[in-house]
């Protein structure tokens, strides 16, 4: 059976590459160069395209009014069109209906209905952020933590729910009380806004600030770097630890690259499945960065505990809240390390 599948896959691969698909990525207003979300997706597309020998191109959107024309133009030229970012949800559904022969992939997009030519990828951001929250709570010396969000849209909020749940878990298991300072930039593009918020949170006494704010968050990392030890930033989406080695405690990763890679392959291999695909820790869709520069700053016991927590999330023993209601009702399970 396996052999047959492999054969079919190989044949379709041959057939498809003979046609040479063209993959288009339409960015949201964040655009490429955000060092997180858009860049991550693009990396996944490029990797898949190189593997399969496909053509790729991207289109950047400058305002919301660009979404429909950009997606339409891309659909005319391309066979697979990526719409990257939650803000494009409505435009994606409108345009996909006009181009039934083009495959549309939405990253960070959720549709309420299933459309034949749209596959969307979502993430359990809360699961990675949960581990990050636990770590931050263990590392903070001032017992104050910060959070900088982009715009309060569901994917950003899911990072916060997980972060808060992680902090709460540490508090209850270790009898510590931690204050959380929250702020939103109402923007994903301007690092200056992220920096202003981080500087303010540091001034209020926070010593670690987690950002879920795209390009805006690059300013948070910059603020932590300028402050120096013992202040930390926490990165998001991709492994941002390298951006200020030693001053980015860790990154709450969301493997948009894995999703993009899988999506391209699914079309090329004929295994395209319309509808929403949700990736969590189990699917390797989210996680915590390997902490290349900061491993030695953290008590090894805490790192072990995080490993244990990760397995508990994988097994489904702990369910991390993904809504405000679930967060309010979140009860820290009894865990014996």
């Amino acid at each position: 059976m396996k052999k047959i599948i492999l054969m079919v896959a190989l044949i379709s691969l041959f057939v498809v590459s003979a046609f040479s698909l063209k993959v288009f990525m339409v960015t949201d207003v964040g655009g490429l160069g955000d060092k997180s979300f858009n860049d991550g997706t693009w990396a996944g597309i490029e990797e898949a395209a190189e593997y399969l020998g496909l053509e790729t191109a991207f289109v950047q959107s400058k305002e919301q009014a660009d979404y429909i024309p950009n997606l339409s133009n891309a659909a005319k030229e391309g066979d697979i069109v990526f719409a990257v970012g939650f803000m494009m949800t409505d435009a994606l559904i409108d345009v996909a209906a006009q181009f039934p022969d083009t495959y549309f992939i939405g990253i960070d997009i959720e549709t309420t209905e299933v459309y034949n030519n749209i596959a969307t990828y979502l993430f359990k951001e809360q699961e990675g952020a949960f581990l990050v929250g636990y770590l931050a709570a263990a590392v903070t010396q001032s017992n104050k933590l910060g959070f900088v969000g982009g715009i309060a849209i569901p994917p950003v909020e899911r990072f916060r729910y997980g972060y808060e749940a992680g902090i709460k878990t540490y508090e209850e298991l270790n009898g510590k009380t931690i204050e959380l300072i929250k702020g939103y930039a109402n923007d994903f593009n301007d690092p200056k806004k992220g920096k202003d918020l981080a500087v303010a949170q540091f001034a209020e006494g926070a010593d670690i600030v987690f950002h879920a704010a795209g390009t805006c968050g690059n300013g948070v990392i910059e603020a932590a770097q300028e402050k120096g030890a013992p202040y930390y930033a926490i990165g998001v989406d991709v492994d941002q630890d390298y951006m200020a080695p030693g001053r980015v405690l860790t990154s709450s990763m969301k493997r948009v690259d894995v999703a993009a890679y899988d999506a391209v392959l699914s079309v090329a291999l004929g295994t395209f499945e319309p509808g929403n695909h949700v990736l969590g820790i189990v699917e390797d869709g989210v996680g915590i960065s390997p902490m290349t520069y900061t491993k030695d700053d953290v008590d090894p016991v805490v790192l072990e505990e995080i490993e244990i927590l990760k397995n508990l999330v994988k097994e489904g023993t702990i369910i991390i809240p993904d809504t405000q209601e679930a967060l309010d009702a979140f009860i820290v399970p009894e865990i014996v390390f």
Partner: peptide, 14 residues
């Protein structure tokens, strides 16, 4: 509007 087309068809940055 033209620059959006330029990006799609000629990969010239906007």
């Amino acid at each position: 509007t033209g620059s959006n087309a330029m990006q799609v068809q000629a990969q010239i940055p906007d």
